[in-house]
């Protein structure tokens, strides 16, 4: 993948550092600028800078040496961005959820965590984005949704794989079981990332992630970065698994709605197949993630209970922001179009 085009001083600093000669002195991305960031979770420059630094741990960039991954100066930059990111996520969670849901876990924290995860994700209800795609979206809006989600789905489940060596016992076994299914259950053609690429290809959309970065909103990048934040920091392994549980438990019903939208619009079989696969798969994953992963993890490490719940709330809150951004874009355009139609009608009349 080529290095993405920066979109502000933070991402510019990171890109400049990565383009510098590997052996020569290179500039450390300045934490300027950080003071200018008002809302890190929707600030595209902030999120892109962090995304680029995280990408060094996944697949890297053309022309950037692989050992940039552990370049101490880049790690220092990443840690600075991560502190701001984590702080912002905690603040958002604090605004959206009452603090009682975190406290008083009682004698059986595992059971309490399982119950809290089920309650929290049921209360969330169907996402407005999925209802819009089911009932109202046109083909263009549907494709925009796929393009926005591509930065995650083309790497689906990869962040959580970093957690496998960081947990043990039944939770590790259950995570491996879930990931095996995400990674195609032994069949390369059923790799979920590949199913999503097939869906894009069937619509004659590009299948490389780099094509979708320029269009991805800050909030969408944040929804991906929060997974890397949790998965790449062992301290936050509980949050990583809570995030996974909330993600899986709020997936089946929306995927079914999106599938109905794809059918309504007569989109190709590969698009329907992707969402069809996720209805049944995520109904299984919901149980695995809540009970077998989070429940077992908290049985083994009860001190992680709060982190698990924090991770789940972070998923719901940050994904909610990304969904709101998309809905706002669609509704502004629709009302803009409606106003234009109205003006045109008046002019014609």
């Amino acid at each position: 993948m080529h290095l993405p085009d920066p979109c502000g001083p933070l991402s510019e600093g990171v890109v400049r550092a990565l383009r510098a000669a590997p052996d020569g002195p290179h500039p450390v991305p300045q934490a300027r600028a950080m003071g200018d960031v008002i809302d890190p979770l929707t600030d595209r420059d902030f999120q892109l800078a962090l995304w680029i630094l995280y990408e060094l741990h996944y697949r890297g960039f053309d022309g950037v040496p692989d050992d940039a991954e552990w370049d101490p100066l880049l790690i220092v930059s990443r840690a600075g961005l991560e502190r701001t990111m984590e702080h912002a996520v905690r603040a958002l969670v604090g605004e959206r959820f009452e603090s009682d849901s975190l406290g008083h876990l009682g004698d059986d924290p595992a059971q309490r965590v399982v119950t809290a995860l089920i309650r929290m994700t049921v209360a969330e209800g169907p996402s407005q984005v999925s209802t819009f795609l089911q009932r109202r979206a046109g083909r263009k809006e549907f494709c925009e949704y796929l393009a926005e989600r591509a930065v995650y789905h083309l790497r689906e489940s990869d962040p959580q794989s970093f957690v496998l060596p960081r947990i043990g016992g039944p939770a590790k076994v259950a995570l491996a079981e879930l990931q095996y299914d995400e990674y195609g259950g032994g069949r390369p053609d059923r790799l979920h990332q590949a199913l999503f690429a097939d869906a894009l290809e069937s619509l004659e959309m590009p299948t490389d992630l780099a094509s979708y970065l320029p269009g991805a909103s800050g909030a969408t990048l944040a929804s991906v970065n929060v997974m890397s934040l949790f998965a790449l920091n062992r301290r936050l392994r509980g949050a990583a698994m809570g995030h996974l549980a909330a993600f899986e438990a709020t997936s089946s019903l929306p995927c079914d709605r999106i599938l109905q939208g794809a059918r309504r619009l007569g989109l190709p079989e590969a698009v329907q197949d992707y969402y069809d696969e996720h209805v049944e798969a995520d109904a299984v994953h919901e149980q695995l993630a809540i009970r077998n992963i989070c429940g077992s993890l908290v049985s083994e490490e009860p001190e992680l209970a709060d982190d698990v719940l924090f991770g789940a709330m972070a998923c719901l809150a940050v994904d909610g922001l990304a969904g709101d951004t998309l809905l706002r874009r669609w509704s502004q355009r629709r009302s803009g179009t409606a106003a234009e139609d109205h003006r045109a009608a008046r002019a014609a009349g």
């Binding site: 049921v122 209800g125 089946s252 019903l253 109904a283 299984v284 149980q287």
Partner: peptide, 28 residues
């Protein structure tokens, strides 16, 4: 067709015998 399957017990699934998470809608 997958190593772990979820079989519906609430009868609300549109994909019987498999679970499609409709029990969540019911609770809600």
């Amino acid at each position: 067709t997958r190593p772990v399957v979820a079989v519906c017990r609430c009868g609300r699934s549109a994909r019987l015998p498999w679970c499609d998470a409709s029990h969540r809608a019911k609770r809600r």
